[in-house]
Computed example of a mutant assay.
Amino acid sequence: MPRVPSMKFKSEMLQAYFVCGTQDIGDRDLPAILNEAIAAGITAFQYRDKGESKLNDEQRYQLGVILRDICNNAQISFIVDDDVDLANKLNADGVHVGQKDERITKVVRDANPDMMIGLSCQTIEQTEIANEIDRVDYIGAGPIFSTNSKPDAVAPMGLELMEDMVNISDVPIVAIGGIDNTNLQSLKNNGAVGAAFITLVTQTDDINRSVKNVLDVFK
C-alpha cells in the first residue's frame, strides 16, 4: 500500500525550517524573534524548548499558545519537538521526535490523527525503519556538520551519509546541524529538500538576510 502523508504536510514547508526555544535566545523575546523570522520568509517553525530552558510545564504551554497563534496567523506550520502531549494540547500542525526522545511508536499512537510527524535519523538503519512507519512524513537528518546549539547532539554525520539516506528514504529529508551560509548549497546538492536551523536566526544581526540565503538555495 502506498504511503499516505498527512493532509497538512507539503515538502515545501521544509525549505527554511526554524527551530528554537527559550534556551537558544538568552533573555530575548521568542515571539518577537519568530515574528521577524516569519517576515523574512521561514516556511515552518519547530517549538523546541528543552535542555537549559527555565520554563516549567505551564509556562511552556502558555508560550506555546502565543507561538502557535503567531504561526497560524501567518499560515506557517507550527511543530512541537519531543512532546506529543503538548503538541496535542496546543493543536499543533505537527510533532517531531528524535531517536533519544519519546518512542516514535508512542508518538504515532498518541498524536492527533491529522498531525504530521517528523523523525530524526542519523543512520541508514534508522532510515530503513522510518520507511516502515506509514505516518512519518519527513526525516530530519543530522547533525550534518558540527554544532554547538544542541548539547546532546551526536557526532556529525557528514554529507555522504546524508546523501545515502536520501537515496533510500521514502520521505523528504531536511538537514540540520552546523548549517551556515557557506554550506547551504552542498546540502541541496546532496539531496536535502531544505535546511533546519537554530543559530542561523538566533546568532545573526540580519535575520532577513540569513533566511533569504536559505530560500535562495532551496526555493
Rank of each mutant, 00 (worst) to 15 (best):
P2Y: 01
P5K: 06
S6W: 07
K10N: 13
E12G: 03
E12M: 01
Y17P: 13
V19F: 04
T22S: 12
Q23F: 03
I25L: 06
G26Y: 02
G26A: 12
P31V: 00
I33M: 04
A37Y: 01
A39W: 11
A40N: 03
G41R: 11
G41D: 04
I42D: 04
T43C: 06
A44K: 08
Y47H: 10
G51S: 14
G51V: 03
G51N: 08
N56I: 01
E58Y: 06
Q59L: 03
R60P: 12
Q62N: 09
L63P: 06
G64I: 03
V65W: 03
I66Q: 11
L67Q: 05
L67E: 07
L67A: 09
R68C: 07
I70Q: 02
I70S: 08
A74H: 12
A74E: 03
Q75I: 00
S77C: 08
S77Q: 12
V80F: 13
D81L: 11
D81F: 09
D82L: 10
D82M: 10
D83H: 09
V84W: 06
D85P: 07
L86I: 02
L90D: 12
N91C: 07
A92W: 11
H96M: 07
H96P: 08
V97D: 10
G98N: 15
G98V: 13
K100C: 14
D101I: 01
R103F: 15
V107Y: 15
N112A: 14
P113T: 12
D114H: 02
D114L: 07
M115T: 07
I117C: 03
I117P: 02
G118F: 04
G118M: 08
S120V: 09
S120W: 10
Q122R: 15
I124Y: 01
I124K: 12
E125R: 11
A130P: 14
N131C: 08
N131I: 05
V136D: 11
V136N: 02
V136M: 04
D137E: 11
A141E: 05
P143R: 13
P143H: 14
I144P: 06
F145H: 08
T147C: 15
K150F: 06
K150T: 14
V154C: 07
V154L: 13
P156K: 13
G158W: 00
L159E: 08
M162D: 06
M162R: 11
M162T: 02
M162N: 02
M162L: 12
E163C: 01
M165C: 12
V166N: 07
V166W: 06
N167W: 01
S169P: 13
D170L: 02
V171S: 09
I173R: 03
V174F: 06
A175Y: 13
A175H: 14
A175I: 09
A175C: 06
G177V: 10
G178Q: 05
I179R: 04
D180S: 11
T182S: 15
T182Y: 08
N183K: 05
N183G: 10
Q185K: 11
L187N: 05
G191S: 07
I198A: 05
V201E: 01
V201G: 01
V201I: 15
T204R: 09
T204V: 07
D205Y: 09
D206A: 13
N208E: 14
N208I: 06
S210P: 05
V211Y: 05
N213A: 15
V214M: 06
V214H: 03
D216Q: 10
V217P: 11
K219I: 14
